[in-house]
Structure formats: structure tokens, C-alpha cells
Amino acid sequence: METWRLVEVEYRDNPFLNLALEEAIPRLVGEGKAPSTVRFWHNSNTIVIGCFQSAKLEVNMEACKETGTEIVRRFTGGGAVYHDSGNLNYAISLRKGHRLVPDGNLQSVFQRLSEGAVEGLRELGLKAEFQPVNDIQVDGKKVSGAAGSIRWNAVFHHGCILVNSDLNILGKVLNVPRAKLEDKHVASVQKRVTTVRDELGRDISTREVRDAMVGGIESCYGVRMESGVLMKEEVWLAEELYQTKYSRLEWNLEP
């Protein structure tokens, strides 16, 4: 059976370094230096915007200051998401051409690599379903969003799961454009999203969701996950990307 490395390195209070490591891992996987990897991690209050988004348009800067919310840009497309300690992030890095995603089509990648998360959420008792383009929904409400890319000879997919996040802060710090809400037929972003806790009707930790995700990924993809550590090259690359890119205002806030 194929073995995937399970990495849980995180920098909760340094979202910039968290996102730098998010890029370093698939780069090394693509080079064949690191194995197929799943990473679980958390951020403290942070808005993570997509690589094509304008921070000025998407983010309520005043609300960010008031709530101590950082803003960081990721290297993948898609929309802005809010992270706090009640949000579980996962990332899957595979070499290009991997048997699970052989055709290099981005929509197939999102669908296939969301299935492990969907399975994990179902194991917890949720009626979770993948909703194209890149969401996982429960009863029509988004509980998880994903993004990804095919580059550096790697296939990369990452997502965040709202486990017990503060949806009030989420509603304040994100400027959701009117055109987007109207299209979804909802009045506010809070009405469109939900949490695992709210859907289950009980308290639940991100650790419990992480355990269910590990089971979901293993059964869904026929792999065994084994706890592993980062390679020196991954740490060095993450530090370099942090210095040259992710800690810089011009990367995070422009255009």
C-alpha cells in the first residue's frame, strides 16, 4: 500500500511563514525530494486571499485592525477565506501524474482531492458533498473551500474546514462583493457558510476533525499515512520564501 507522509508543522502566530511552508512542500514534492504529503495546520486570526485578488477590494482593513486579523496572500487562486484557531487547514501535495489525478485537469483535481475531506466529514455524521467549483457543502451551506494548482511538476490541493470558527468576525473582515451574494441568493456571507460544530449540534475540536480526515483520506485513496518530519530543504525553502515573498507587503497587499 502506498504511504503518504503526514506533516503537522504549523506556525499559528505567523501566517506568513505558514503560507511559505505551504508553497515549499509541493515544490520539493515536485522535485521528487519529498514524498506525497498531507499537511494539517492552523492559523490564528488571518484572512488568506487568493493570488489574483485585490486585498483592498476583498478585505475590510478597519475590521482587520479592530480584530487583530492579519492578511496574507496564498500562491493559489480562488477566494478569500478567514482562518482562526477553530479552522482546520489541510494540504495535499502529489507529484504530477500521480495515479489519483493523472489527467492534469484542475476541476478533476479539486473533485478528487476533496473526496478524502468529504469522507472524513461523513464519518463524523455530516451529509457533506463536494460542490463545484471548489466547495464542500452541508445542506447547501459551505463548510469548506478548496484551492489548488498544478505547477512545479506537482499537483497541489489545499482547503480549510470551518470546525468552530467565529463566523461573526468572518462576516466583518471579508468584503463579499454584492454580485457574489446575489448570485448565491443570500443576504450575507454568514448565511452562506456554516461550521462543523453548528451542523453536528455539539462541541467538536479541530483534532477530532483531523482524526476523521486521516481516516477519510486513507480509505478514500487506499493509502496509509505515516507521521513524518520536514526535510531540511523544505525548511530552508520555506524560510527563503518567507523572507523574499510572504512577509512582504507588496506580495500580500498589492494590487
Binding site: F52, Q53, S54, F75, G77, G78, L106, S149, P255
Partner: peptide, 15 residues
Amino acid sequence: IRITGDFFLVPEESL
């Protein structure tokens, strides 16, 4: 022109 948004485009640099 500046194009932004929540779409996906690979390779990202091509925008």
C-alpha cells in the same frame, strides 16, 4: 488594465 478575482488560472503567472 488590472484583472482580479476569485477565479483559478494555471499557470498563475499567465494573468
